[in-house]
Structures are given as C-alpha cells and as structure tokens.
Design a binder for these strands. Sequence first.
DNA 1: TATTGTTCCGAACCATCGGTCAGTTTTTAT
DNA 2: ATAAAAACTGACCGATGGTTCGGAACAATA
Lengths: 206, 206
Amino acid sequence: MPPKRFHKTEKCNDIAAAALALFAEKGYAATSVEQIADAAGIGKGTVYEYFASKEEIFVHAINNWILDLINRMVERTRNIENPVQRLEIFISNVKDVLKLQQPDPKRLFADIDQQTFMPGGAFYKRRHIIKDMRAVFCGLVTDILLDGVSKKVFKPEIARDVSKIAVNLLAYMDGICMHYLIMEEYQEFEEQVNFYIRGFVDAILI
Amino acid sequence: MPPKRFHKTEKCNDIAAAALALFAEKGYAATSVEQIADAAGIGKGTVYEYFASKEEIFVHAINNWILDLINRMVERTRNIENPVQRLEIFISNVKDVLKLQQPDPKRLFADIDQQTFMPGGAFYKRRHIIKDMRAVFCGLVTDILLDGVSKKVFKPEIARDVSKIAVNLLAYMDGICMHYLIMEEYQEFEEQVNFYIRGFVDAILI
DNA sequence: TATTGTTCCGAACCATCGGTCAGTTTTTAT
DNA sequence: ATAAAAACTGACCGATGGTTCGGAACAATA
C-alpha cells in the first residue's frame, strides 16, 4: 500500500541549489520562499515538505556550497609535488572564487556573516559549522606548509609556528578578498596578492 | 512669529547614537524604528521629523561611529616620534576596537557589509562612503610608513610600494579580526597578531 | 478498481514593521 | 495674551512574506 518514498536528499539538494543561486543574486532576506519554490519548479507548500523553515534551506545551501569549494580545493592541490606550486595553486583557487559570477560569492559571504553574528540567525546556534569549515581550510594550508618542510623546500623552523602561519595567511586572503569586493578595483587585486605572496614565499623558502 | 528651529543636528546625533547601540545589540533588521524612538525617548513619528527613513538613521549612525574611530586613531598616533611605536599603537588600537563591548562592533560590521553588498541596501548606492573610510585608514598607515622611511628607520625601498604594503597590512588586520570574531578564541588573538607584526616590522626595518 | 498513504499545492492566515497623518503640545514673536 | 509655526505623538495603513492547512493528485498495493 505505501508507495515508495522519493529520494528526499536529492530533492533537498535541488531546492538548495535553486535557493543558492537566488541568495547569491539578491541576498537571503530579499529572497522569498515562493521565489525559491518557483526556481525549483515546485509549489511553495512543497518546500516545507523538505525543509522546516527558510533558515534550514539557507544552512543546507551554504553547507553544500562550501563543502563543494573545499572538495574542489583539496582535489586541485592534492597531487602537486612542488610545495611552492601547491601554495600558488591554493592561492589562485581562492582568487578564482572571488571572480565567480554564478554564484557570486559576495552576497553569500555577507549573508553568512549576518546569519552567524545575529542572535536568532540561521548560523547563530550552529557557529560550529562555520568554524569547522574555517578549520578545514586552515588544515589544508598547514598540510601544504608541512609538506614543504618535509621536502626541505621550506625552512624547518616554520614547523613550530605552522598553524599560526596558516591562520595568518588565510586571514590575509580573507581580508584582501573583502577589500576588493568593497573597493571594486579588481585590476589591482592580482598584483596586490602576488606582491604579498612573493614576500610570504621568500620568507619561508630555504 | 516663527519660533527658532531646534538644533536639528544635535537631535539627529542623539537618535543615531541610540540607534547605534540597538544595531550593535540586535542588528539592523531586528531593530524597529519604534525601539529606536523609545531608546531616544521620543515618539515614533518624531523620528521621521529628523530622518527620512530607517536607512538614513543607519547611514548617519555608522558614519558617526566610524568617523569617531578614525578621529581617535589619528589623535593617538599623531604625536608619536618613533615610527615602530606608532605602528604598534595603530595596531593595538585596531585590536581594541574588537574588544569593545559597547558598541560591540561584530554586528555593526556584518550589517555594514550587508547594506553595502545588497541591491537596495542603505550603503549600496553610497559605497563611496565605505570606500572613503577604508581609504582614510589606508592613508594613515601609508603616512606612518613614509614617516619611518624619512626618519631612516624603515627601508627606503618600501616607499616605492608603500600603498600596496599599507593595503596588505590593513587587509590582514581586517581578516584576522574577522577570524577571531568567528572563531571566538580571543586568548590567541593577541599572540597571533603579535607574531604577524613582528615579521612585518622585521621585514621593513632597516 | 478500490484503498491507502505519500506527495504536492497555493490560497489564506497572521504577525511584523516602515511609514503616514490628523491632531495635540510647546515655543517664540508680537 | 495670542497667534502661528514648529515639534511631537501614537493610532492607523498597507505591504510583505514566512508558515499552515485542507484537500487534490498520484503511486503502489490487493
């Protein structure tokens, strides 16, 4: 009698994907559940068969998005032998995210911060999700640095402060990305980052 | 017959100050105009005698807040002779802003980004305000660096790339502040920044 | 085909809130 | 005193949009 249940997860991801595009285009607050439903090709009420609330959609969509970014990053830096090149690929991947048009990360980042900091925000009681993601990126850079040390390309003494160095590098990338999202002078962006990275690599190279 | 007009500006600032506290506490979206009016000790309708819209209140409040930060920063770094110390004071002032409890800058920063990036946001059509403020901070650092060069404390060759260096330093401070606002491990914050700044100063010191 | 649980739907509900306005109070000039 | 303009007020309006709900459509048994 009971008909077989649909693959709920798959449909959840479809809805989240449609929502992500809208969030990136107009922002979380300006995107209505009805628009998400339309974009996903389903009725408004159906959305609530898959998600308990609009916030849940946001959490799911952002989670998928960042997991995807992380996976791509890991994949692209995994099999590179030269640590310097590995670092450069990491950096250029971060830079590439900024230039994405679809989804444009600008508003997604702003909404993530918003939902993380505001009491009652979608990520407020789940800051651990955002923290974990940052930790993963941090671990990635740490791996690259330690790999360089073990291959005797980077100075051995950086091993002692490797997590500090990784955090600082990521903080810089974060900040400079935000700087150019605000200042909108993308022409100089490449040059600016290259200048920094040159100094960074020089400082840790044997 | 016509009674003398009240000092509109003064009352505007009062309202904006009351609003800023609420924005910092609950965020822009979660703060209603009525709450602002109550906090300022006036009626809701009166608010609209001084501001055309809620967005205007936000712009005014944020403007005052950042102008205040800038003024304090300038004042504290102005008369220091030693360029290294000047830089350190600058940094420690940035760090201090993070630790403020009233107003807690976390939500203000999130709201500023939000209102700058979202179409229709309060700062979307006035990004120049935000850009200008960043430019002022950048100029401050540039001044300190050039002062150091002229006093033969910093390497002369940094003069060539001085604005790049300033932008990078600010980007780092931005990023590391955001990092710690998210990660909430303030204990390590000082240590982390000090580690960075030591490397930074070493690199530019003659 | 009848039955039964699942999936889907969008009209309707409801709470919120920015902004308005008609009327009251206060201030100042004569 | 009094008149006129300014300052103030809070009830009200209109719009928005998240969530609910009663029922339609559908698929899988028997």
